[in-house]
Amino acid sequence: MDREEALLRKRLIELSQMAFHKGIVIFSDFLNLNELHILHTTPKDLFYTEYETFGGYEMSERQIAAFLPDALCCASGYPITPLEILPNASKFAVGMSHRDYLGALVHLGIERGKIGDILVYEKSAVVFVKREMAAFITEQLTRIGRQSVRVKEQEKPEETYLPSCQLLTGTVASVRLDTVLAVAYPLSRSKIVPLIEGGRTFVNGKLILSNGFHLKEGDVISVRQLGRIVYEGELSVTKKGRHLIRIKKFG
């Protein structure tokens, strides 16, 4: 365990201890995939309370941990506010990337842990932030690059926030992590293997370092800097014994 991981684990345990002694729900900042992996692999007996995680919508990647004293739950009480970022002149607006939106937020001096997922659409985006940052961002974020923008809070059902996706099919020799990733992304095996062995691939929130990890129907695979896919299962087997599979790719 390196120093950074040890410090995060210690901090999460301290939050759990605080929730236990105060008898209230205590929240972390947004945790990235690697930080969530550290949370989920920390022995449960080190925590003083149970915990749950949520990021504002069902398919969220960055999530907040809620440490829960006995008999308490956190069904809808997470301090998360979705903000919609819109161009002021939509007629002349140009599409912007995830990096553009994130860069503008960080440029305001906001810590990364206060910002959750950013869902990018054709000419707008929705960003999930810690509630205490919502008013500041709404007032201060007026420009991204050369484009003038406005920000407003959203109060829509969780089901509204689903990233765009496409269904893909392909044949593989076996339903291994590396072969399924090759269907999702136009990358050679020589480029996919380093992604997995380099600690950038998570299945259902758990870090996977084995290329030959066998997937099950419904598994959610997240690859840092590339996105997420869901393995939807096997459709058929060809005469040559290859498996025709279907995946859902979010982007």
Rank of each mutant, 00 (worst) to 15 (best):
E58D: 09
V151Y: 01
I38Y: 05
F54I: 08
I85P: 09
E84G: 02
H40G: 03
Y51S: 11
T49G: 11
L68I: 15
L39Q: 06
Y161H: 09
D45L: 04
L31H: 04
V106G: 00
K44D: 15
K44H: 13
T138M: 03
L162S: 15
M133I: 03
E58L: 11
E122W: 01
K123V: 05
P82A: 08
I118V: 14
D29K: 13
Y121N: 13
Y161V: 06
L119Q: 10
C73K: 10
T53R: 04
E158S: 14
G113C: 08
Y78W: 13
P157F: 07
L36C: 06
A135R: 01
E61N: 05
A135G: 01
F54K: 08
V149F: 00
K152P: 00
K130I: 09
G109H: 04
E132H: 08
V94R: 12
T53V: 15
H40N: 12
I137Q: 01
N34E: 15
T41V: 09
K130G: 04
H37P: 03
L72D: 06
Q166Y: 08
R146P: 00
K130D: 07
F54C: 10
D100I: 03
L141K: 00
C74W: 07
A71T: 14
N88V: 13
G77P: 10
K91C: 00
L108M: 04
L167C: 03
K44P: 07
L102Y: 02
T138Y: 01
Y161K: 06
F47H: 06
G109L: 05
E52Y: 06
V127A: 04
A125T: 04
V25T: 14
P82N: 09
L31Q: 09
L46A: 02
I118T: 08
D100P: 07
Q147T: 11
T42K: 02
I26K: 15
L46Y: 10
I115H: 08
G55N: 04
E159L: 09
I110C: 01
F128R: 07
E159S: 15
K114G: 02
T42A: 05
M59V: 07
T160C: 12
G109D: 00
I144S: 05
L105Q: 06
D29I: 02
M133A: 13
G77S: 14
L168P: 06
I64M: 11
S76I: 08
I118E: 03
F92A: 09
P157E: 12
L167Y: 09
E155W: 05
T81V: 13
I137S: 01
H37T: 02
L102H: 04
I118S: 12
F136A: 02
V120T: 13
V126H: 08
S60N: 10
V151E: 01
Q147Y: 00
Q140L: 00
V94K: 09
P43L: 11
G109P: 02
A66S: 14
A93H: 09
L68R: 10
Y101N: 09
G56N: 09
L167N: 05
F54Y: 15
P157S: 11
E35A: 11
D45M: 03
L162C: 12
F30C: 11
E159G: 06
T81H: 02
